[in-house]
Amino acid sequence: MKRADCIKAIYPEFETCLVVTIMGACAQELYDLGHQENFFYLQHAMGLASSIGLGLALNLPQKRTIVLDGDGSVLMNLGTLATMARYRPANLIQIIFDNGSLLSTGGFVSHTASGITDLAAIAKGAGIPNVAAVSTIYDFMEAAAAAFDRRDLSVIVAKVEATGPDHFGMDLKLPENALRFERFIRENCKKIVENSRP
């Protein structure tokens, strides 16, 4: 299974969501399907895509937030899995594309490469209430549909090949992305002002 195919399969759902992606290959694959103002590409700060997603989801409970993550990035910030579980925003879905590789930085194998480290088990152990581990596109679609249907925090660990795009580049400067993303939310997402306590 290829990550690009997974992202393509659920891309139509993204229109009504906020989407945060990790750097490099994953960001490029999303961008190549067509940029939308509700996409934020975290091109550095490894590990924090999930934390940004958590901050968005907690503060915009009526908006679904999707995080497109990677094994290397998640391994750098395992703590946020526990923080996510503790505050359990019902509108947050984290999809971890586990390619067993630090693909965007030269393809070094990661701790998950030979199945030694099991990110789905870690997510469960962190207390994430809904965790799916999938390795075929059919199972991915099913897990994604279930996550979109339920109103509860979900993590999908999708085992994918360590392949990415053959080109990199976006017509979007990093602060420009942040400014436009903030503006999009300000102009399009109704805020529930009173009591956002989880």
Partner: peptide, 13 residues
């Protein structure tokens, strides 16, 4: 982590 969560809160207004 708090940096990421704070950024999300800022984006959310």
């Amino acid at each position: 982590e708090a940096v990421g969560i704070a950024a999300g809160a800022y984006f959310a207004g």
